[in-house]
Design a protein around this nucleic acid. Structure first.
Lengths: 143, 143
DNA sequence: GTGTCTGCAAACCATTTGCATCGGT
DNA sequence: ACCGATGCAAATGGTTTGCAGACAC
């Protein structure tokens, strides 16, 4: 998983606020959700800036990018290596309490010409809310 | 992993050709790549049809959808459960010789309110071609 | 025959980018 | 002061969709 050293980056007000807000949240927001939140404190911020800074911050190792599952990207203020579950119904994301799997990459690399540098593991499932709804009602997977 | 029974679907010429071509390939093509290939046999096919049918075929369990990594979707004619590596430089995808991990979902579900129905594991690395280029030249990871 | 599928083109929507101005260091 | 960062708006690019005619069963 991505563990490069945090580069020193210019800490503008936009980046500061973005970082603060993301670290407050446990919801793994999308860029647009984050934009709406940050806008309360910086009404003139632009969505382009949010995208640019999420990119800068993730390259600097200050936030984690969850770029999986064909859906929109989501972000995590917690940069410690850990896995996630994504709800197949509503897209919500949560952390999984499961230590990082060791030795996987070495095993995968055996007999391959590739050099393997990391892995991404994401679980799929139903979040508590959607599970409740599914029990009685129609379960119709999205996509 | 997705293991639902193949529904009986109307087997149109477009679907037939799509399926045949995808099964010939080991390259895990994108929808657009597949469109270019299929077009050689069905010159009037449209990209919309390719997308619609890849969706139908994957729901029917006849092809596998690799919807990971923030990049474009890719497809696999091999529907047996297996993992993939994606090149961080060029996006190429290959199969990984590693049995499906057992008991992972049960372990992840412990202490969670979620019901976990599957997982996605994808490796990242450098394909043989890009690794060669990287050794001498500039290694500039994409994204 | 009829309900689904197709081709075509326009729409969508998350993300990126060009540009002139602004701001951190 | 200088170079990178911002706001704004337009562009991009993969994917989806509305519609009228065509086709599989």
């Amino acid at each position: 998983m991505n563990t490069e050293a945090a580069q020193s980056i210019r800490m503008t007000r936009q980046r500061q606020v973005l970082l603060e807000e993301l670290r407050k949240l446990k919801s793994h927001p999308t860029a647009v959700e984050l934009y709406e939140i940050v806008r309360k404190r910086l009404p003139r911020v632009s969505l382009g800036t949010v995208y640019r800074n999420l990119d800068v911050l993730s390259r600097a190792g200050l936030v984690q990018r969850l770029e999986v599952s064909g859906a929109e990207m989501r972000f995590d203020g917690d940069t410690s290596p850990h896995y996630h579950v994504r709800c197949i119904r509503c897209g919500r994301v949560a952390d999984v309490e499961l230590g990082v799997l060791e030795g996987l990459e070495e095993k995968a690399a055996q007999g391959m010409d590739w050099s393997i540098t990391g892995h991404w593991l994401e679980f799929k499932g139903l979040c508590p809310r959607c599970r409740g709804e599914a029990e009685g009602g129609t379960l119709e997977g999205r996509r």
